[in-house]
Design a binder for these strands. Structure first.
Length: 110
DNA sequence: CGAATTTGACCAGCGC
DNA sequence: GCGCTGGTCAAATTCG
């Protein structure tokens, strides 16, 4: 019905590739914000970083991504997943960069 | 076959 | 004290 051809159990939401691997472990509809929220966790061993994706059922194009946990501790250098490692280390800038990459440059809205 | 993903249900904390 | 919500886990199913 929803997937003629290819296979895809996705809920129909396209996540922006941030350069890391994530494992989805839950999804729920939050009435408080009238939006859907998906819970992702870093798929790397030893990395307990969590990622939350929030979007409205009417606007799957408006994704709101939030990173929790701090930073990835696995070898992003040896893996093939490196966000914007253009030189400079990162900590808070890393989180902001990822969010901006998903929103464009309007975060937070406030 | 292995791996990945999805859904439902349960639990805990908080507010009034 | 009770109800409600959010968050996580487990199991089942499916694809390449």
């Amino acid at each position: 019905m929803e997937q003629p051809g290819g296979g895809s159990r996705s809920s129909g939401i396209e996540l922006p590739e941030d350069g890391f691997e994530w494992k989805k472990y839950g999804q729920k509809f939050i009435k408080n914000i009238s939006k859907l929220r998906a819970y992702y966790k870093c798929a790397r061993a030893g990395c307990s970083v969590k990622k939350k994706v929030e979007w409205a059922e009417s606007e799957p194009n408006n994704l709101r991504i939030t990173y929790e946990g701090g930073q990835h501790i696995h070898n992003t250098t040896s893996q093939e997943a490196g966000p914007s490692r253009s030189g400079g280390s990162s900590s808070d800038a890393n989180r902001y960069n990822l969010i901006i990459q998903a929103f464009g440059d309007h975060y937070p809205p406030s």
